[in-house]
Simulated scan of single mutants.
Amino acid sequence: MSKVIYTGTTNTTGGRDGASRTSDGRLDVKLSPPGSSAPGTNPEQLFAAAWSACFLSAIGRAAAERQLRVPADAAVSAEIDLVSNDDGGYVLQARLNAKLPGIETDLAKSLVERAHQLCPYSKATRGNIAVELNAA
């Protein structure tokens, strides 16, 4: 490993029915199970937010490698599914949907593929969960 650039630290109590707070207090959220009407968000939504933010930045880096700029209205939506499997446990699967207005479809797909190689969240999940990449 190389030099650590940043460490994000959270403390969570109560699991999916609890709360999570970062060490600097900038994030302080109530948690609730997926599909619940209880107040709060769930881990899958938090993971989707984090991955989509990182992935959009990785698209920007992929574009910069080609001396291109990502449009200001570019966006990535991440869909994280919590799936029950045959052994009674759970797994995740994901879809990353990139919208790159004004960028030709083949180029957009190429940037998304490259971003998937660059993004730390994509690297962390590679080979561990099914991931579908989409570009428009």
Rank of each mutant, 00 (worst) to 15 (best):
residue 64 A to C: 06
residue 60 G to T: 02
residue 134 N to D: 10
residue 28 D to P: 05
residue 27 L to N: 10
residue 12 T to E: 11
residue 61 R to A: 14
residue 68 L to R: 14
residue 16 R to Q: 08
residue 102 G to M: 07
residue 101 P to L: 03
residue 43 P to I: 03
residue 72 A to K: 11
residue 69 R to K: 15
residue 83 V to F: 02
residue 5 I to Q: 08
residue 97 N to I: 12
residue 29 V to S: 09
residue 7 T to E: 15
residue 10 T to P: 04
residue 90 Y to H: 11
residue 11 N to Y: 13
residue 35 G to W: 03
residue 17 D to V: 09
residue 101 P to R: 08
residue 94 A to F: 02
residue 134 N to R: 15
residue 119 C to H: 03
residue 104 E to N: 11
residue 68 L to M: 14
residue 9 T to Y: 09
residue 47 F to D: 08
residue 82 L to G: 04
residue 108 A to V: 00
residue 130 A to P: 09
residue 51 W to Y: 13
residue 82 L to Y: 05
residue 131 V to E: 02
residue 122 S to H: 06
residue 32 S to K: 13
residue 106 D to N: 15
residue 121 Y to I: 04
residue 69 R to G: 11
residue 29 V to L: 15
residue 128 N to V: 08
residue 49 A to K: 08
residue 122 S to A: 10
residue 96 L to W: 06
residue 40 G to R: 01
residue 66 R to V: 00
residue 39 P to G: 12
residue 63 A to W: 00
residue 131 V to K: 04
residue 45 Q to M: 11
residue 99 K to L: 14
residue 31 L to Y: 00
residue 119 C to P: 02
residue 59 I to Y: 04
residue 26 R to N: 12
residue 42 N to S: 09
residue 23 S to L: 12
residue 33 P to M: 07
residue 50 A to W: 00
residue 34 P to G: 05
residue 49 A to I: 12
residue 10 T to C: 12
residue 64 A to M: 00
residue 27 L to D: 06
residue 92 L to H: 08
residue 103 I to W: 00
residue 97 N to G: 09
residue 66 R to E: 15
residue 13 T to C: 10
residue 50 A to M: 07
residue 103 I to A: 05
residue 78 A to C: 12
residue 74 A to S: 13
residue 6 Y to F: 14
residue 90 Y to R: 13
residue 6 Y to E: 06
residue 72 A to N: 12
residue 110 S to V: 02
residue 95 R to E: 13
residue 48 A to T: 03
residue 57 S to C: 11
residue 53 A to I: 03
residue 46 L to M: 14
residue 88 G to T: 10
residue 111 L to V: 03
residue 128 N to Q: 13
residue 92 L to N: 05
residue 82 L to H: 08
residue 88 G to R: 09
residue 62 A to I: 04
residue 49 A to Y: 05
residue 19 A to L: 09
residue 25 G to D: 09
residue 21 R to C: 07
residue 5 I to D: 02
residue 11 N to I: 12
residue 58 A to R: 00
residue 16 R to N: 07
residue 90 Y to F: 15
residue 31 L to H: 01
residue 18 G to C: 06
residue 17 D to N: 15
residue 107 L to S: 06
residue 129 I to P: 02
residue 5 I to R: 11
residue 4 V to F: 04
residue 126 R to F: 04
residue 86 D to I: 10
residue 41 T to V: 09
residue 111 L to T: 00
residue 129 I to A: 07
residue 118 L to E: 00
residue 97 N to F: 07
residue 116 H to D: 02
residue 89 G to A: 11
residue 39 P to V: 09
residue 93 Q to F: 01
residue 53 A to P: 03
residue 72 A to H: 10
residue 79 E to Y: 11
residue 2 S to H: 12
residue 130 A to K: 12
